[in-house]
Nucleic acid binder design. Structure first.
Ligand code: FES
Ligand code: FES
Lengths: 161, 161
DNA sequence: CTTCCCACGGATATAAAATATCCTTAAATT
DNA sequence: AATTTAAGGATATTTTATATCCGTGGGAAG
């Protein structure tokens, strides 16, 4: 099991979009060029983010995407769930029901103990993602990425909005 | 992203194998019949558990598998990692390196901040799984599964060892 | 010693999901 | 009116998951 590469793209795109000045937009083309990924496929990820209400798009020249909310209101989980979906990573097929010793009277009012553990682990994963916001990421980047690169990148983005 | 169904099979198989009396074995055939899953494919999961040192198999009639360690020495993580592998669920493709503003002198001594968060979430997932042992599962089952079903199931297993 | 049962592992087939491209539509800008 | 762009449907390609098949050799039982 491995997460889709769309996650990495979407997370980095949201990070880039936080450079976009208010009332302006950055196009899919620019985002695809910046990350060197296929534009048409990246478009699908951005559409998912749009449907999730994380970014908003507008048409026409000078159109594109921008964040729909403040970076402090967008968590990693929001973005990952827009790409991967909200369903648990563990799918219980109720294999326990195949136990040949079971009779019809054995009802399953409680979920399987195995599934409960797996779902708990899934929740722990999501909780970690929920605990990190886009604003936290920006702060970390400021501390770890060379200032000149950050500056140039910001200019590059603003230049195309 | 969804975990393989082998995980559910392997976890339930380990649970069943904890019924096996010392010095005896339960065959793949019996495990497949018990869970109503294809024997040949289940065999692959059991081989993975065997290679991970969670179960041990023996050949010949009256052969099969049994747990290689005490249930209190086997965690959910051991089993899941035997099936899914130990690698992180998030694959970073170093997309940041495609930033057109980068120059050769920008080295990446530290991993990307995005990847660090995703790996932290992966670690949280694994930590939860590491925190539950097969012995804990047995205890939970004792509390939630009707006593008569547990007893019949145990007898079914012993009958085939 | 012979026969049968079994784990083990390689090879292959099928189904499903991820990745990627193509194309049409309609809205916003110039 | 012409151009740029998001939106989304359709389709193709690649990879992974699921499943089956078969050969090998070890171990138990007669
Ligand atoms: S029946 Fe699905 S995890 Fe137990
Ligand atoms: S470069 Fe891979 S997550 Fe940032």
């Amino acid at each position: 099991m491995i997460l889709k590469n769309q996650n990495e793209w979407a997370l980095h795109c949201c990070s880039v979009l936080s450079w976009v000045p208010p009332e302006r937009y950055l196009s899919t083309k620019a985002l695809a060029e910046f990350h060197d990924v296929p534009k048409e496929y990246l478009s699908k990820a951005l559409q998912a983010l749009s449907q999730a209400g994380i970014v908003e798009g507008t048409l026409g020249p000078s159109g594109g995407y921008r964040l729909a909310r403040k970076p402090s209101d967008i968590t990693f989980l929001d973005i990952v769930e827009a790409i991967e979906g909200k369903g648990s990573t563990f799918a219980c097929t109720e294999i326990r029901k195949n136990n040949p010793c079971r009779t019809a009277k054995h009802c399953d009012n409680k979920p399987c103990a195995v599934a409960r553990v797996m779902w708990e682990a899934d929740a722990a994963w999501r909780n970690t993602l929920r605990g990190v916001r886009l604003s936290d990421l920006a702060k970390t980047l400021k501390e770890t990425v060379p200032a000149d690169l950050l500056e140039k990148t910001g200019a590059w983005v603003v230049d195309r909005t």
